[in-house]
Design a protein around this nucleic acid. Structure first.
Length: 666
DNA sequence: CTTTTCACAGTCGCGCGGATGGGA
DNA sequence: TCCCATCCGCGCGACTGTGAAAAG
């Protein structure tokens, strides 16, 4: 199939023949020009990981420079010291014999510090809100069934690249999954993503040099992905197509500025199992259907485009839709066809092409594949785990209508809030009372609950003035010095791009607005930045709201109470990831949730539900999970935590409800 | 009993068109 | 008075999870 066929506007349906490549061929033959990079070895211990990471960082295929390496180790130490119990306290879904499940949570426990972003890197890198892609992990495994849905077989390169060569890692060793199932990568398949002298911007290819380079991919909104991943992410699939949430969003570096690339996402089976939600957890149930037909690829609408373009801003796949309708893709919308109750792994492909969109065969290493294990999800037609449902409701702006406690959540004093929603976790200060009207779009979805925590909206606390709007200078550089302020305002990629068109990146703009008191009109947001869940509208409307909706200003001045908080330190990325992890794990003091009841953390003592009452639990677990504010307790009469006092319930409900399933072992 | 489908209500952004105000 | 820009309200469509019904 010609590559043009997957370009925007063209059908991405693939001939059936491309799906029938044999597993063996697919998993063993490798294109010399292809690169597949996955995160693996996630089961390794911290020390092993650190070692592996260091090993990965050093040697012939150095991924980071020495400074980066040092920072990496330092980051790890920080993270490990801050959250020493992360592993043992993390929930586990499924039995130990469930490879994928166990691995999944190892990812959660270890992933944060592994996604190292060097604080010593140029500020541009430091500010990157995304997860630094390269690290020595293991769970990037992708089930390579007979169906193939691997890039090589499912995509269009059958006529261009050697069959199966595209998708396979360069390593020869393959781990087996079950009988006859092969992962695309094994522990030994770690492929240095960047053989150059470093991964920082300094190592960017010279424009027009034409030399093939190894790209680095940062998973943006990774904290949000991790949140979902802890509970085993579920993605709704419908006949008409359902958007992913969280959606895939990446930052890419290391591309040739002038070369043209196609960027697309492929979603492949993550394991050979059919899954079902039973007893409050996901368990395997038979073999997966490998013969599922349908499109598995979503080409970014801006493909093809130059490396400079891809590196200029985040690459968002927010409009990617998932469907179970094999006859989908008849319209203009690209949809990926999945099968319910199967586990999938999204993968990002970057393929260098000629200017007219045809793959450039002039040199090797034109194709690169990136896999983030936390992007794994189980496709469902209806949510099974209420924790996932609640996370979706609390994070997805389109589900705002289901936030029963929406009002109190945003307007009530923290002390009066009845809402220990996920966003009310220690990090929930991103949602600041009073910001509801002023910056509502910013404090939602991935903006709110992800970016702020990590980087971009870390400034959310600053963005919403603590004291009548004017940002305390202390907040800017109290922790990390003057450089920190800039780090928060300018994304690494944008900054690095000489031709950056993001003069007003949303970072900087938002920061600018954060410096303004309420009612002061900020600069209009014009960035086409793809950071937001709905980047096209959120910022524009926000700007419009600020500029024109006086009612918002009036509402803002009603003196909605909130507790002034000290401005957060300017985190470096490594610190942020640690911070994020800590907060997620509830290791930090939480002014709202209480030091003993962080939302995301729950000690095993929370085991309340009788483990033997699996069906009862399942019922409770599947019941609608109303946001625990207001009448939520009434709506959840059978939840075990109902006996808690209101306050206790508010503190405990989420974690309890969320973790009952995970601590049912005797 | 499990899984899928569908209608529904809620939120939001966008576009359209009328109202308003300033300048020529 | 006319033209233009801006503001504002309204309706529509997109999108979400819910919950009941249908299907297997």
């Amino acid at each position: 199939m010609q590559l043009e066929s997957i370009l925007p506007g063209a059908s991405v349906n693939l001939p059936k023949t491309f799906y029938n490549l044999s597993t063996s061929s697919e998993s063993t033959s490798n294109s010399p020009g292809s690169t597949q990079i996955d995160f693996q070895d996630m089961d390794r211990t911290d020390s092993e990981q650190s070692s592996g990471a260091k090993k990965f960082l050093s040697g012939g295929n150095t991924l980071m420079d020495e400074a980066d390496t040092e920072s990496f180790t330092g980051t790890k130490a920080t993270a490990a010291a801050a959250a020493p119990d992360a592993r043992k306290t993390s929930p586990v879904i499924g039995g130990d014999d469930e490879l994928s499940s166990a691995r999944r949570y190892n990812i959660d426990e270890l992933g944060t510090d592994r996604y190292f972003i060097s604080s010593s890197q140029p500020s541009s890198d430091v500010t990157n809100p995304c997860s630094l892609f390269p690290y020595g992990g293991q769970t990037g495994s992708v089930y390579s069934g007979s169906n193939g849905s691997r890039y090589s077989s499912s995509l269009h390169y059958g006529s261009v690249l050697p069959p199966a060569g595209f998708s396979s890692a360069v390593c020869a060793s393959r781990s087996q999954f079950g009988s006859g199932y092969q992962f695309g990568q094994g522990p030994g398949c770690l492929y240095p993503s960047y053989p150059g002298p470093g991964s920082s911007l300094s190592s960017m290819p010279i424009p027009g040099s034409g030399s093939a380079t190894r790209a680095q991919v940062y998973l943006c909104n990774r904290p949000l992905w991790l949140k979902f991943h802890r509970h085993q992410t579920e993605m709704i699939i419908t006949k008409q197509g359902r958007r992913m949430f969280p959606f895939l969003s990446f930052n890419i570096t290391g591309l040739n500025l002038t070369a043209h690339y196609n960027v697309f996402v492929e979603i492949v089976l993550a394991d050979p199992n059919h899954w079902r939600f039973q007893g409050g957890k996901w368990v395997t149930c038979g073999k997966a259907d490998n013969n599922m037909q349908g499109n598995k690829v979503y080409v970014h609408p801006e493909s093809p485009n130059t490396g400079a373009h891809w590196m200029r801003q985040e690459i968002s796949f927010g409009k990617l839709k998932l469907t179970n309708n094999k006859g989908a893709n008849n319209n203009n919308t690209q949809m990926i066809v999945l099968q319910s109750l199967h586990k999938y792994q999204p993968r990002l492909h970057i393929v260098e092409v000629t200017e007219d969109g045809v793959e450039d065969m002039s040199s090797e290493a034109k194709t690169q594949t990136f896999t983030f294990p936390e992007n794994q999800f189980i496709a469902v037609t209806a949510y099974q785990n209420t924790d996932i449902t609640q996370l979706k409701i609390d994070h997805n702006p389109f589900a705002k209508g289901f936030r029963d406690n929406y009002d109190s959540m945003y307007t009530a004093p923290e002390s009066d809030r009845l809402t220990p929603s996920p966003t009310d976790s220690p990090r929930s200060h991103q949602i600041v009372p009073g910001a509801r009207y002023a910056m509502q779009p910013f404090f939602q979805d991935q903006f709110v609950n992800n970016l702020p925590q990590n980087h971009r909206f870390y400034g959310s606390e600053r963005a919403v003035p603590q004291t009548n709007g004017l940002l305390s200078p202390q907040s800017e550089d109290s922790a990390s010095g003057a450089a920190s302020a800039q780090r928060w305002f300018v994304g690494p990629v944008q900054q690095s791009s000489a031709s950056s068109k993001l003069d007003l990146s949303y970072d900087s703009e938002y920061s600018a607005s954060s410096l303004l008191p309420y009612g002061i009109k900020p600069l209009p947001l014009q960035s086409p930045h793809a950071l937001g869940y709905y980047p096209d509208s959120a910022f524009a409307s926000m700007a419009a709201g600020w500029s024109s909706r006086s009612s918002y200003q009036r509402k803002m001045t009603t003196g909605l109470p909130w507790s002034p908080r000290p401005s957060p330190p300017a985190y470096t990325d490594d610190l942020l990831t640690s911070k994020d992890k800590l907060q997620d794990e509830g290791s930090t003091s939480a002014p709202t949730a209480g030091s003993t009841a962080p939302w995301m953390e729950a000690p095993p003592v929370l085991k309340v539900v009788d483990s033997g009452d699996a069906s009862g639990y399942a019922m409770a677990c599947k019941r609608r999970r109303v946001s625990p504010g207001g009448s939520s307790t009434d709506a959840s009469p059978t939840i075990k935590c109902e006996d808690l006092s209101s306050e206790e319930y508010n503190k405990e409900s989420h974690k309890a409800m969320g973790y009952y399933a995970f601590y049912t072992s005797p």
